[in-house]
Design a binder for these strands. Structure first.
Lengths: 347, 347
DNA sequence: CCTATATACTGAAACGTTACAGATTGTCAC
DNA sequence: GTGACAATCTGTAACGTTTCAGTATATAGG
């Protein structure tokens, strides 16, 4: 009677639950639950038996059940700016994150914030609704309210880029200081003396990293700077192109560029050519790139690679590490630029 | 006594629940639940009162609770191939989807499938674990096992690209037939007679769409095809570049190209130049692009724009529509190519 | 033989929500 | 005054999980 009823209940519903396993093994749900998570108070044989059956029938814990009971979501949220983030960037980071969480119970959810919205809004939403166990943010600022907020609430996160608030948290960053210094040294090495920098937007931390590297290396090699700070990599292709062309038509114009983004570099080159000058002859450009396409564009371009897939992977590892109990300070990483590829025109 | 206890319970936990609202309004949780979803058996004043209080204290339904009780996840899953999907593509689609689900209760989760994995695996996972209310897939095939599977299980989905199985489901597709015909006509119009097509991979549906458009237009304008089917847009930049260069060194070589992807076009142009030929003089290339960058690369390139952000938005609308009860057949859309931009060299 | 203690297991309750099956009114017809 | 009925509200159970507070059995110490 009792048995029949339970049996019927279990066979009716499609997906196996703890109750199903309990019935099949003849144990209580509590025992099954504990056996599956290797609790010490369960006999060794029972444990193996339960786990065997669970694997056989393809038991997977119901996420909603776990989440409701424990508050654990098994979700990592990647928070993205809908219009400012550079294209290839995003997909590479996503792939990097995916790679790492692939064989964990975690899911990746993408939380966008749009237009004129406060960047803190999506973070508040995530924290208030308890929608994620961990968060990844980018476009990090020196004094970042999002990082501060999450630190206060004690929710694990990692930032793409560093902050500068005297607070410790996991991050992954590309060494933009090293990028800028190497770029300047290389340009100086091939005889360029008046350099312009297309920098990241001022509000982001890596703006000053890049700028510091640039100016430090300038004085090191004794070259001078041609100011180019009316635009940043966040500006439109058209604006950058126009400003570049304007600048290249002036008497005192740069003979070398350092560009912090691949798309912007296309615009710079276009601007240079608009002004009737020739890349590799009148001016050289060193650019960061994330996909391997710039050298197809103009083979005279000098490129430095930034690996966003790696960044995504590192960020995911950091967040998971923090969730897993590691200390935030031990989850910081910096990736060095992979060498300047010097494509000098063969002729 | 009873009151004190309830009060204490509610104030202890941070986030308001139905119980909190019930206590504040003096109603039962059932009534509150119904009032919030505008059930007819709730008095008009009560309804307003409950909704007012709910808004004031910022009540948000607990997703885990809803999901456990109803099975509704409020999740849309975007299933992506980790290595094959083209870069900018992905982020644009994500942004498009985000845009549409922004003011719905839905979250977007990204489900990747990697390497040598069966494309059906992630779909099976989603369906078996009931992880999503709706699914979006790309890299659609004429006979697509994923679409068939989801159709059988009755789970709402939309495909980026069409199938050809005689089954009806929502899709969004770019009109690649029109793209190919317009491209060929344009090339013929500027005097090109021997055309090569860099097609999508054969297994995907839009391969034949593109190919049909190409060959139909060829016979229409009386031009001939130079076979170029040893590579597809899925091949590496290096392979495409090499094959192109090989072909361009032969006696009978194309004087026009139609390319189905922007990245591949970079490779084609590189190959053309490797062979010592000049774009716009010896050969013209019409290419699809998703971001507006190709004309910066070589201004002789002829480009047709495919809007992936729009695609993402349409796909999201379709899935939501299906979930909302619309008939699958009414959720299909095709986007026309936006005109060939004819950048002829001015000199 | 009785008590203490470790070992292996178990039922009940709770997380927040919704659906089902009432319960309590008030109104109206007769 | 009674019964029928609509309108409005409510308690209980259930979704699948984990935690709490046990229970039952075996082993050992005295």
């Amino acid at each position: 009677m009792d048995r029949d009823q339970t049996e019927k209940d279990d066979e009716a519903s499609g997906r196996p639950t703890l109750k199903t396993l309990a019935f099949m093994t003849g144990l209580g749900v509590t025992t099954v639950s504990r056996a599956l998570k290797n609790a010490p108070e369960i006999g060794a044989e029972t444990r193996r038996r339960v786990q065997l059956v669970a694997k056989q029938i393809g038991y997977r814990p119901n996420r909603a059940g776990v989440r409701l009971r424990t508050g654990k979501t098994n979700v990592i949220s990647l928070v993205l700016n809908t219009e400012r983030e550079i294209m290839s960037f995003v997909s590479d980071i996503i792939y990097g994150v995916s790679e790492v969480i692939a064989d964990t119970p975690y899911h990746l959810i993408v939380t966008p914030y749009s237009r004129s919205q406060d960047p803190l809004d999506p973070i508040r939403y995530l924290v208030e609704t308890g929608s994620a166990d961990g968060v990844i943010i980018s476009r990090t600022q020196p004094n970042d309210p999002r990082a501060r907020y999450m630190l206060e609430r004690g929710i694990p996160f990692a930032t793409h880029g560093r902050t500068d608030m005297g607070l410790i948290h996991p991050y992954h960053d590309f060494d933009n200081y090293a990028f800028a210094t190497e770029a300047v040294r290389h340009l100086a090495g091939i005889g360029r003396r008046r350099l312009a920098l297309l920098a990241p937007p001022v509000e982001l931390t890596y703006h000053s990293h890049t700028l510091n590297g640039f100016t430090d290396a300038l004085s090191e090699v004794g070259a001078s700077e041609i100011p180019f700070n009316t635009v940043s990599v966040d500006h439109s292709i058209e604006q950058i192109r126009m400003r570049t062309a304007q600048m290249m038509r002036r008497d005192v114009r740069p003979d070398g560029f350092v560009s912090s983004a691949a798309a912007a570099t296309l615009a710079i080159v276009a601007g240079i050519e608009d002004a009737g000058l020739k890349l590799g002859r009148d001016v050289d450009v060193v650019s960061k790139q994330s996909s391997d396409l710039l050298h197809l564009f103009r083979r005279e371009l000098l490129v430095v690679n930034e690996n966003f897939r790696l960044a995504g992977a590192e960020l995911a590892r950091s967040v998971l590490g923090w969730i897993g109990g590691a200390t935030p300070g031990s989850l910081q990483s910096l990736s060095k630029p992979t060498g300047v590829l010097a494509y000098r025109p063969p002729d």
